[in-house]
Simulated assay, not measured.
Amino acid sequence: MRESERKFRIIFDESMDGLILWNETYQIVDINGSAERIFGLPKEKLLGQSLFDLFNRLEKKKQEIINHIDYVAKNGKQNSTMIIKKNDGRLRHFDYSTKRGIVDGLNLTVVIDVTEKVEVQEQLRKSDRLNIIGELAAGIAHEIRNPMTALKGFIQLLEPSIRAEHSLYYDVITSELARMDSIINEFLILSKPQEIRFLEKDVCQIMQETIDLLNAQAVLYNVQINTQFENDLPVYCDPNQLKKVFINFIKNAIEVMPNGGEISISINRINEQYLQISIQDEGIGIPKDRLKRLGEPFYTTKEKGTGLGLMVSYRIIEEHNGTIQVESEEGIGTNFKLVLPLSKE
Rank of each mutant, 00 (worst) to 15 (best):
E119P: 05
S127M: 14
R129E: 12
N131M: 12
I133Q: 01
G134I: 02
E135H: 15
E135R: 11
A138N: 06
I140A: 12
A141R: 01
E143R: 14
R145Q: 05
N146W: 08
P147Q: 02
T149L: 09
K152I: 05
G153V: 00
I155K: 08
L158F: 11
H166V: 07
L168A: 13
Y169F: 15
Y169D: 15
D171G: 11
V172E: 13
T174M: 14
T174F: 09
A178L: 08
R179N: 13
D181R: 08
S182W: 15
S182I: 09
I183D: 08
N185T: 15
N185W: 11
F187K: 00
I189S: 03
I189M: 05
S191P: 03
E195K: 12
F198G: 00
L199T: 07
E200V: 12
D202K: 05
D202S: 06
V203W: 00
Q205C: 12
Q208L: 11
E209M: 09
E209R: 10
T210V: 08
D212E: 11
L213E: 08
Y221N: 15
Q224W: 13
I225F: 04
T227K: 13
N231G: 01
D232T: 08
D232E: 15
D232P: 05
L233F: 04
C237V: 08
D238M: 00
P239Y: 04
P239R: 05
Q241V: 04
Q241W: 02
K243Y: 08
K244D: 14
K244F: 07
